[in-house]
Each structure stands twice: as structure tokens, then as C-alpha cells.
Design a protein around this nucleic acid. Structure first.
Lengths: 109, 109
DNA sequence: ATAACATATGATGTTTTTATCACTTGATGA
DNA sequence: TCATCAAGTGATAAAAACATCATATGTTAT
């Protein structure tokens, strides 16, 4: 397979942003949420959430479902969920030393 | 497990850069290489390569081995190699639409 | 048809990230 | 021990990514 650097960059860049990361982790935990719910739970502005959800959708990280006025977003379970698990494992093994102090201590599991 | 957003950001940010990505893919393909060899093969400047390798090392994506004047770097096979494979699969399924035209065509496999 | 609500889009000033420059450190051999 | 080669470091100007603002679109209810 041919490595398309620009696509890798788009993919990883999508997860290299703290706000998008929070949205992704929120959807991992909460399942399907609409934009307003994401705004409430994160205290982020609506426009920012929309912009970031669009980017996540472009990369196939989340799915979108319309219902009336609402747009419901959910994590791509088939692909992103297991991927994030792999990364969690990697981070535990290799990124301990860069964990911020507060989290280092009460990191149960 | 506790999600440390800053660590995720560091991790993904490391792969969200085209030059680091090229270095990572080079090490995936070529195995162990020293700094000079990476410079030659990529035509990147030495200082840039050193800076970027340091970041990759911080995240546990590459290993470093000293031999005389040289520093040999290699991909973290246990963790990053399988991770990149998962991502390759994801990109093929969900990121086709964002692939640059040139690569779309002669993307065998 | 119009108001109200939910979400999306485009433009832009600001912040963050990056490559490069000048320099340092460390190792080998003369 | 001095010169040379290999690699690393810190500062900074330039480039890229970002949040926000103003506005647009689409949907439901009145």
C-alpha cells in the first residue's frame, strides 16, 4: 500500500488537538450525542464544536445522524475505538514519563 | 484508565507532522538508520531531523542506540508498527475520499 | 409566512508549531 | 591535544492551526 503523507497528517492532526480529543473521549464514554449536548458537557462554544466535529467526520472518526433539528454524533466503533485502546496501551508503556504529575498518581488501572 | 489529554496531544501531534511522518515511514521500511542516513534518504537538514527524532523518542515511537559517533534509530516494533497498520486499514476504509488524486489511482493493494 | 431553535460556514486575528540559524557536545583519529 | 565528524540544543522568524465572530442554512411550530 502507498503511504499518502497528507492523509496521515489529516488523520493524526485531527487527534492532536485537545478540544477534539475531549470530544472524541466524550463520545467514547457517552455514546451518541448531539451538538448541544456536547457543548453542555464540555462547556465549549457551539461554532467550535461544529468545526471540530466536521473535521472528525472528514477523517471517518465519527458518524453523523440527523433527527429533526438535531445532528447526533457517535464514535466510529469499528475502527477508532480499538485504535484508541491500542494507543492507551502504548501510552501506558512508553509515555509514563511525560504524564502530567496529577494524573500520574491516581491513574488506577 | 484516566485519559490524560496532554499526553494524547503529544502523542498524536508527533505524527501530525509531514516530516516526522516521513521519518517514521522510512524507519518502518528500512529498519535501523542513523541520523546521517535519514538525512540522505529524506534530503532533510540534520538539525531538523535531530529535533524531530527527539520528539518521536519522547513519545516512545522510536528507539535509539549509540555506536561510536553514530546514533541509530529504529521504529518501536512492538507498539507503533501494529498501530500504524490499524491506521492504514482505517484510512483505506474511511479516508479514501480525502486521498490526493495522484495516490488514489496507483494505490495497489 | 415568520419566528425560534439547532447547526453549519467563511473570514480573520491570535496562538501554536515548525524549520532554520548559530552554537554546543561528544567521539574518533592524527 | 587538536582537528574533524556526527549529533544535539536553544532561540527565533515564519508558517500553520485554532477559536471566535458574524452570518447562513435548515427544521419545526405558530
Amino acid at each position: 500500500m502507498k503511504h499518502d503523507i497528507a492523509t496521515y497528517q489529516l488523520f493524526f492532526g485531527s487527534l492532536a488537538n485537545p478540544n477534539r480529543l475531549k470530544i472524541v473521549n466524550l463520545l467514547r464514554e457517552q455514546g451518541e450525542l448531539n451538538v448541544s449536548q456536547i457543548c453542555e458537557l464540555t462547556t465549549f462554544e457551539q461554532t467550535m464544536v461544529s468545526h471540530n466535529l466536521k473535521r472528525l467526520e472528514t477523517c471517518g472518526m465519527v458518524h453523523k445522524r440527523s433527527e429533526g433539528k438535531h445532528r447526533f454524533y457517535s464514535i466510529n466503533k469499528e475502527s477508532i475505538a480499538p485504535l484508541m485502546k491500542l494507543i492507551d496501551t502504548h501510552m501506558h508503556k512508553y509515555c509514563e514519563h511525560v504524564l502530567s504529575k496529577e494524573n500520574k498518581n491516581h491513574c488506577n488501572k
